[in-house]
Amino acid sequence: MVEVTGLSKVYGSKAVVEDVSLNIEKGKITSFIGPNGAGKSTLLSMISRLIAQDTGEILIDGQDITKSKNNELAKKISILKQANDISVRLTVKELVSFGRFPYSQGRLNKEDKRHIEEAINYMELKDMENKYLDQLSGGQKQRAFIAMVLAQDTEYILLDEPLNNLDMKHSVQIMKVLRRLVDELGKTIVIVIHDINFASCYSDNIVALKDGKVVKKGPACEIIHSPVLKEIYDMDIDIKCINDKNICIYF
């Protein structure tokens, strides 16, 4: 479990995240939703220790992340940020191999190669594993970066808007893969996502943020309701139940 208590982050005079407390259940998909500037990505970055919190505490399985060694934390938690620009020319397979660095330190063994192959196959990239990243479409490149995170084989996977640059088909593919990782392999996934219908259909739990604060948190079926979404997004959103999932109608 990830336990966040009294977490805050201030830039200049603006509190980007303000006194956030929440628990993230193991073996579940938890989605962070909310408007732009709500603090979702900053919260995710603090949980992964990419940026330091100003106040508050983050425990992963009871351990304070500020006291964890980098290499050990990298075996426990992986994160994919929005910006993934790499200046070095790499093939898909070379990129995915970077996910094994906390274990191999650059010297890949049989186990590392197995994880790399599995991640490439999970993301349906086998036919382009030897292509260079600059030869790929935006969606293909995004799938390659997600494969790198999968190869890291951490219990906790944090993804910041992983559906960016993806068309409908590949967005569904990514969400189905994430669901399988949780249901079949027991992973714990935290995702920042803008599409509230994907959040509704694939999440176990949702944390809704606005202006750096948690507005609502709970099971997805409790969050995807018109009055709650009105408070979050300041707009009227009609809800239809389709195949036992709450689907938001907004256009």
Score class of each variant (00 low, 15 high):
186 G>K: 07
212 G>M: 04
156 Y>H: 13
209 L>E: 02
63 Q>R: 14
111 E>G: 05
49 R>N: 12
73 L>P: 05
99 G>W: 02
161 E>I: 05
91 T>M: 07
6 G>W: 04
184 E>C: 05
96 V>A: 01
6 G>T: 05
217 K>N: 09
139 G>Q: 06
199 A>S: 11
206 I>T: 05
103 Y>L: 03
243 N>Y: 12
80 L>Q: 08
19 D>Y: 11
57 E>V: 13
22 L>V: 15
24 I>F: 13
91 T>D: 06
171 S>K: 11
115 H>I: 04
98 F>N: 11
171 S>F: 05
11 Y>V: 14
93 K>Y: 06
179 R>P: 00
46 M>G: 02
251 F>G: 10
67 K>R: 15
113 K>Q: 15
118 E>G: 02
248 C>L: 03
197 N>T: 08
99 G>I: 05
23 N>Q: 13
33 I>P: 00
154 T>M: 10
63 Q>S: 11
43 L>N: 00
218 G>F: 08
32 F>L: 15
13 S>W: 12
116 I>A: 02
20 V>R: 06
245 K>I: 10
81 K>H: 14
14 K>L: 14
147 A>S: 06
117 E>Y: 06
131 K>W: 05
168 M>R: 13
146 I>V: 15
168 M>D: 08
128 M>D: 00
209 L>H: 03
5 T>W: 04
118 E>D: 14
196 I>N: 01
155 E>L: 10
206 I>N: 04
71 N>L: 14
7 L>C: 02
153 D>F: 11
56 G>T: 03
70 N>E: 14
120 I>M: 06
193 I>K: 00
224 I>P: 01
175 M>A: 06
90 L>T: 04
222 E>P: 03
79 I>R: 04
188 T>W: 01
